[in-house]
Design a protein around this nucleic acid. Structure first.
Lengths: 229, 229
DNA sequence: TCAAAAGTGTTCTAGCTACACCCATGG
DNA sequence: CCATGGGTGTAGCTAGAACACTTTTGA
């Protein structure tokens, strides 16, 4: 039995204040009718990351995918019946204001209430969610979930939905600005129908992944240096 | 061109106060004479982790390998000339007091002064080293580098060698005991020839990977809870 | 009694939480 | 002028860094 190699992407987005994942419904056996992650066979002239970006392009506008990273290999011998198929899984993130065109057999599903999923894809989604939650706390990964510009309370909603627990807007703002992750644009957003003070508009200072919580202990001695390594 | 799948292990150990990696010298082309990571083809009835443990057993006593974890996939189309070979790379750790029998073509090499390496294996070793350094600071992973029992100054040497920078024994002890990672056995070790106070003997409270630096910000609100998730 | 090595006590500080309070807007 | 949502000031706490000091041994 020859070994094939596929790539799979768990694309996550906060929509309607809920963390959701992009799935498509299989039309053929095995696992007909179940929901699966987008992906497909690794091509001869591409590495796994190129492959997953290419295959994602068939489901969503790749411009909208703000971040892609490798999750790991899933390789149980019987993970897909009938063939030996090793999968490299990826996490993909789409900003909450993006609403990409998607094919008819494709839909967003809440990560914490998945439909019947194909193969080991539910496990992959869980890993993707856990990776996102971990990285939101010690990196600037929020940039990949947030619109280009936003208010702190909108950002608070995003973080709360992704993390699955309440987040204080006060401290979120303070922590992220202290770390140099957020900056004010100087603009303000108009208040809602119930009134209230207009909110300041912020943006992420960078849109590439950076580790911001250097609190990782046991760091080199001596005077505090820049985080840049 | 069919796609093959191999597994590779970067097995690290602190020997003689230097972080070293286990390599074997290739006897055949391609890359004859260069040094390579242990590993080999994925078998039909095993997943990648079983495979890497099986293949490691040919080089070292697997009992000695205290920790194994997946690093990632290396899949550049031309990473190995002539064939399409996707590799799943692993990090393996061996306690500093273990001195496993190894085959004649195999040797330990300092991670920071590698010999001529085969294919993309130098990159994999670098990734393994970086992963180890990161996890030493926010997990109890030290258990996999240390003997079952040890003095704090011995542990200090280990951490300094693995991290590549000096580490204070005073604070190392305090941080790790406060986190509940270390505990005293009650024994003491005899001083060296130059005298000095006998050192207390410690052990790791657990020998399974656990995240100990909950300092990851943006954690759930409310009273401090146990780290166990 | 001195040098060496180990261990403890104490101070300083960064960075995060919590909460009270002040600000700007719509009705 | 008051309810609503946004933003700031500030006190307190935790945990790690640094360093002085004490303890226990060999010579």
């Amino acid at each position: 039995m020859p070994t094939g190699h596929e790539v799979l992407a768990a694309v996550l987005q906060v929509r309607a204040d809920v963390l959701q994942v992009l799935l498509w419904q299989r039309g053929k056996d095995p696992d007909r009718g179940r929901w699966a992650l987008p992906g497909g066979a690794l091509g001869a002239t591409e590495d796994v990351e190129e492959s997953v970006r290419r295959q994602l392009a068939e489901k969503v506008d790749v411009q909208e995918v703000a971040h892609v990273e490798q999750l790991g290999v899933f390789s149980a011998p019987a993970r897909v019946p009938g063939v030996r198929l090793v999968a490299t899984a990826f996490l993909g993130l789409v900003p909450s204001d993006a609403d990409p065109e998607i094919p008819a057999d494709t839909a967003w599903h809440p990560v914490d209430r998945l439909p019947e999923t194909a193969f080991d894809h539910a496990e992959i989604v869980r890993d993707a969610r856990d990776r996102l939650r971990a990285k939101l706390s010690y990196t600037n990964l929020g940039f990949a979930l947030a619109p280009r510009e936003f208010t702190v309370s909108a950002l608070r909603e995003l973080y709360a939905a992704a993390l699955g627990h309440p987040v204080s807007a006060t401290n979120l703002q303070r922590v992220l600005t202290r770390r140099g992750v957020l900056e004010a644009t100087g603009e303000t957003a108009p208040p809602g129908p119930a009134g209230g003070r207009p909110a300041a508009v912020f943006r992420f200072t960078e849109r590439a992944l950076r580790v911001t919580d250097a609190s990782a202990v046991l760091r080199p001695p001596g005077p505090r240096e820049s985080t840049g390594e």
